[in-house]
Design a protein around this nucleic acid. Structure first.
Length: 270
DNA sequence: AAATTCTCCTGAAGGC
DNA sequence: TGCCTTCAGGAGAATT
């Protein structure tokens, strides 16, 4: 499932194909996504030139003079650049047609969305209350520590809260907590500022490393052939229940925290 | 305010 | 082999 690194990799992959290009049409084959694709999207986006391809959290922003197309890939969404004559496959729900190429949105589970906003995207209800960008300087242990003071719930839920920090999904939350040696169920308010510094660094590192790994498979996001698949990750705890911890050899445990599977080493994480 | 539960949907995996 | 059940999961909305 696309987490922040996949979204950023997608952004980098499609940006060169979109920048400065004019949208000549929009084809909606299936508009029933997380929210319905607006009937007037074609009218709004058509004829517009793409000025920038940005990312905020896991949202992609295609900026034009008239407004912004906000795209979220949900759980199973992906974007590819395909030739104009390319035959759509199952679950290829939307085409953003350019003069020489097509930006094609594919999403089997339809948890994603394509929304148009004429205002500054930062004012959109979905983006307005988003927390810090984990790879920007604003994010750090100080911020986590400050926001955690009234949070009595599990730290794993805390760092997955988009109002705190964006882009930390279930997989990277487990990985970052392992790297930082923090037990996922520990109450957020009961972690020292010092340990939060380590956690912030771990989050930054695990995301950055994944983005770097994604760079080597950028071509997978572009072209008619092959799947716009997500790159494989080096996971040390996620999905490794019962397997030995890479650090101490103890067996990795799985536990449901906040309705989500969480993986951790009972010996390395406290 | 914070925490919990529910919800959307399909494909993969497991059971028999 | 095939059918049925279960589960996973981003994140907003509703509820406590």
């Amino acid at each position: 499932m696309p987490e922040l690194p996949e979204v950023e990799t997608t952004r980098r992959g499609i940006e060169p194909w979109l920048l400065g290009e004019k949208v000549t049409g929009v084809v909606v084959r299936e508009g029933r996504l997380r929210w319905p694709v607006a009937a007037e999207l074609a009218a709004m986006l058509g004829g517009q030139r793409v000025k920038a391809v940005e990312r905020r959290g896991k949202y992609l922003l295609l900026r034009t003079e008239a407004g912004t197309l906000i795209i979220h890939l949900g759980m199973s969404g992906s974007l590819r650049i395909v030739p104009p004559e390319s035959e759509p496959r199952r679950h290829d729900h939307v085409d953003i047609v350019l003069r020489k190429n097509v930006l094609r949105y594919h999403d089997p589970r339809r948890f994603g969305c394509l929304l148009w906003t004429a205002e500054a995207p930062g004012k959109h209800p979905l983006l307005r209350n988003l927390g810090a960008e984990p790879l920007e300087p604003e994010f750090g242990g100080g911020l986590l520590h400050a926001l955690s003071c009234k949070r009595r719930g599990a730290v794993k839920n805390f760092i997955m809260d988009g109002k705190v920090v964006v882009g930390v999904g279930n997989i990277y939350a487990s990985e970052a907590l392992f790297a930082a040696g923090i037990h996922p169920a520990r109450a957020a308010c009961r972690i020292s500022r010092h340990r939060y510094a380590g956690l912030a660094e771990a989050i930054r590192e695990v995301l950055q490393r994944a983005i770097d790994a994604g760079g080597t498979t950028l071509r997978d996001f572009v072209g008619a052939e092959g799947d716009a698949g997500y790159f494989s990750r080096e996971l040390l705890v996620y999905g490794r229940e019962g397997a030995p911890c890479v650090t101490c050899g103890d067996s990795i445990r799985k536990r449901i925290i906040g309705q989500r599977s969480s993986f951790y080493c009972p010996r390395c994480q406290h």
